[in-house]
Nucleic acid binder design. Structure first.
Lengths: 203, 203
DNA sequence: CTAGTCGTGGCACCGAGTGTCAAGAGATGC
DNA sequence: GCATCTCTTGACACTCGGTGCCACGACTAG
């Protein structure tokens, strides 16, 4: 009951923020502007979001856990490139499901790529995902993540593919090409990802 | 003449900052602490460094340009993995040349990896390098960096290898292993980097 | 000795983010 | 219905990073 109200307030804040940020740009909007538009106090804003950047980046909060869970759900017999591509594709496809959700996601993507401060936060988030992915890949292939560079770098390559897709997405127009972009990006890193099976058996 | 004094002041500031930051931690040291230790005014600090993070990150300013220049200097007949590994190895080896310079570099590396704010800046710097590397790789292989994902991802993979080396460097003890770490890291991404020659001729 | 230039310090200011406290809205118990 | 307890909110004050502005002092040219 109180939880719904909390979510409602957060949504109100987030919508007001996204609208202002997308139109005026990140740096030209202060937190006071946002709370004025949402009709709340400055202090309340920081109770719901840890920082101004957080309003935008929190948008991708669940995506990370979904990716990890998706990877864990893939059968271990699958080559790394395939398992990782599927794990990343699921939340990416979810973004394009709902019409308004997709448009908002593109706004967020643009905003993140255009704003240095947000880009930095997005990169930090990526690093968190990479840590989790590294751990998952380590157990998946029975490797020590501290000594063997493969798990960390495999996770990094998957994120690199994901980042490339995100970079090309707002630029192009069609949404259907998202799948194609994803396939092409993962195809580039696939040779290195799947070279594990040989080097693993060898080393 | 005046240039030497500028450099002298900057060094003074940087040394004082690094000493405090390394011992007390990044967040526990204010700019006022730094300028007090260096015997200068707060305003002067920001004339030499754009931000508190900049004191640490500027340490790696020249490295990026060196890497790009190093890549441009490699013969085009070289496979991408070899050319990139050499380009990254040169400034990395330079860090280990001078004794004190090496120790300071390790302090900086630790500081960057341990501090979220600095880590974010380092990632931003990496992105700048990636842009330059992408452009260089694009002309190097006659590809369009906007449509073909390879240049961007190849640059990203090289940086991923570099980042992995930096991550493993302060953890281990020996400096001689730096070359070994670099070789191993680049060996992981080499299959994807050198798959270009086949896909390029095919596509 | 004077005039122009440049680095510097001091000051005021903005914006992000935090701690603290009082007031109000509900839910609960009598 | 009323007291009470809790949870959220708003307001104020404060710290700190960062910037604009201006005046002072040093250094140089004529």
């Amino acid at each position: 009951m109180a939880e719904r109200k909390r979510q409602l307030v957060a949504d109100e804040l987030r919508d007001a923020a996204l609208m202002l940020l997308a139109t005026r740009g990140f740096d030209a909007v202060t937190v006071d502007d946002i709370v004025a538009a949402a009709g709340m106090s400055r202090r309340t804003f920081f109770r719901y979001f840890a920082s101004k950047e957080d309003v935008v980046v929190q948008f991708l909060a669940d995506m990370g856990t979904d990716i990890i869970a998706g990877l864990a759900a893939r059968p271990r017999t699958e080559p790394p490139s395939v398992a990782l591509r599927h794990a990343f594709w699921v939340p990416l496809a979810a973004c394009t499901d709902h019409e308004d959700h997709a448009e908002r996601a593109r706004i967020v993507a643009r905003l993140i790529l255009d704003t240095p401060a947000l880009h930095a936060r997005w990169l930090e988030r990526q690093i968190q995902w990479r840590s989790a992915l590294t751990a998952e890949l380590a157990v998946r292939h029975s490797l020590d993540p501290d000594t063997d560079p493969y798990p960390r770098m495999a996770a990094g390559m998957a994120l690199l593919a994901f980042d490339t897709v995100l970079h090309q997405w707002p630029a192009g127009g069609d949404e259907q090409r998202l799948a194609e972009l994803t396939d092409r990006a993962f195809a580039v890193v696939a040779p290195a990802l799947d070279a594990l099976t040989a080097s693993h058996n060898a080393g």
